[in-house]
């Protein structure tokens, strides 16, 4: 049976390769945050207060041009996927104390979830397993803080012809493509993509929510059909 330290080290080691993709993401956030007019302290501390890449980028891009309500609803909609992560990972963490669940909730990011849920599913002995998520989560947290600082202070040194921002949609493609297997999932994806194009010009702060909710409605009959088969 693995010790706490062995689980923790596994989490750190397995999370490390993903940091190659996370670092430029943090760098981009740091650059955007400063360019958008946030102070150094606001830009840096947001990485620990919110600690959610896409949300922070949306915040930095839109906080001056949309209402607080629109900004908050956009950030909620972007983070809704974490509900799903929580539901699935809760199966392995429900025996933990409240203190642990608070710490691990804070560290539950896309990359930490992806690494740790795979690890949890392969382990029969669940004792101390949560140290793996602590290791993967803390690794990502540290990379995120360091890369934010680099973006804030050295972002301008990056040549303009290197479009690192393109890593963001690429990361999202890499995350969602393996999730799309069923017919209703393909329909939902296509519908939300087409609706995003239709709604984008109408009201840019609501295009994500409108596209997401309508595409869920469109795919409902196909889910029901899938259930009945």
């Amino acid at each position: 049976m693995e010790t706490k330290l062995e689980h923790f080290k596994s989490g750190v080691i397995q999370e490390l390769p993903l940091q190659i993709g996370v670092f430029p993401f943090g760098l981009i956030y740091g650059i955007l945050a400063i360019e958008s007019g946030l102070s150094l302290l606001q830009a840096f501390l947001m990485s620990s207060i919110i600690f959610a890449g896409a949300s922070q980028i949306v915040f930095a891009q839109f906080y001056l041009v949309v209402s607080p309500f629109s900004l908050i609803t956009s950030i909620i909609s972007i983070n809704l996927r974490h509900l799903l992560y929580g539901i699935s990972i809760n199966e392995y963490l429900k025996e933990l104390s409240l203190k642990w669940r608070i710490i691990l909730s804070y560290l539950l990011t896309d990359e930490a979830y992806a690494i740790s849920i795979k690890y949890f599913a392969t382990k029969k002995n669940k004792k101390f397993m949560h140290y793996h998520l602590l290791g993967s989560g803390l690794t990502l947290f540290l990379t995120w803080q360091i890369s934010t600082l680099f973006g804030i202070f050295f972002g301008r040194l990056i040549p303009e012809n290197i479009n690192l921002a393109f890593i963001i949609p690429l990361s999202f493609i890499a995350i969602i493509t393996p999730m799309i297997k069923q017919k209703y999932e393909i329909i939902a994806c296509l519908a939300s993509g087409i609706l995003a194009i239709l709604f984008y010009k109408l009201n840019f702060e609501l295009w994500i929510i409108f596209s997401a909710l309508l595409s869920l409605l469109i795919s409902l009959p196909f889910i029901q059909k899938d259930n009945s088969q």
Binding site: S77, A165, P169, E185, G193, A196, I197, I208, S211, L216
Partner: peptide, 14 residues
């Protein structure tokens, strides 16, 4: 479906 329908519009925009 939520991650798919939320992230796809962001990809499309980019």
């Amino acid at each position: 479906l939520i991650p798919i329908v939320v992230l796809t519009p962001i990809i499309v925009q980019a």
